[in-house]
């Protein structure tokens, strides 16, 4: 059996920060400001990215926009099938979604199934005016007709590779890694 290659760093701490700064400006440009704008981070990686975007946007606009947390476990389409699952986390959407422009934030966009589940969950909370998607990494291999509005980096990958986004808040270090799945 060939030896497993060690993970390769595809983005470092500075790279992540620059991407998020650019995305923050793009969000403001596309939505012409922060009117009715809210952020919703998908548990767990998306929460920290959404918090960072919230900080960056409030630094630019001098106003803190609302931030929600979404756990999509209960909306998955593979609840009884997959063997890899994180424990159920709390969902906190402490504001009305009616007529809001929701920026959904996740770390990696892959098959699109997580985003499908997240949209179903959001719509159960109310009728947002629109939902936009911001991701740090788009690695391709979509299985559903879903695309991101804001992308940190397009990362061509093989289906069998693993892309992991490590963040200071949960892993103690900011970096994006790609490695061969065994």
């Amino acid at each position: 059996m060939p030896e497993k290659k060690s993970p390769r760093v595809v983005m470092d701490s500075e790279g992540i920060e620059r991407c998020l700064t650019r995305i923050a400006y793009e969000i403001l440009e596309k939505n012409k400001g922060i009117n009715n704008l809210v952020l919703v981070g998908i548990r767990t990686g998306g929460i920290y990215l959404a918090e960072r975007l919230q900080k960056k946007i409030s630094a630019i606009e001098n106003t803190k926009i609302p931030l929600g947390i979404l756990d999509i476990t209960l909306y998955r389409d593979d609840i009884t099938k997959t063997s890899k699952k994180a424990p159920l986390g709390k969902t906190k959407i402490p504001f009305d979604l009616e007529d809001k422009k929701v920026i959904l934030v996740d770390d990696v966009l892959f098959t699109g199934r997580t985003i499908r589940a997240a949209m179903d969950a959001l719509i159960d909370f109310g009728r947002p005016k629109m939902i936009q998607l911001a991701v740090l990494i788009d690695r391709g291999h979509r299985e559903l007709p879903i695309r991101a509005d804001y992308v940190g980096k397009n990362l061509p990958s093989s289906f069998w590779e693993a892309v992991s986004v490590n963040l200071l808040e949960k892993n103690g270090k900011d970096e994006v890694l790609i490695e061969e799945e065994t």
Binding site: Y75, K90, D124, F125
Partner: peptide
Amino acid sequence: NLILETAESFLEISTREIKKVPT
């Protein structure tokens, strides 16, 4: 502990306007 923690995450659903998830 696992059951109690999972249950705490379920509390929020009963506070929603649409008190239902498709799980």
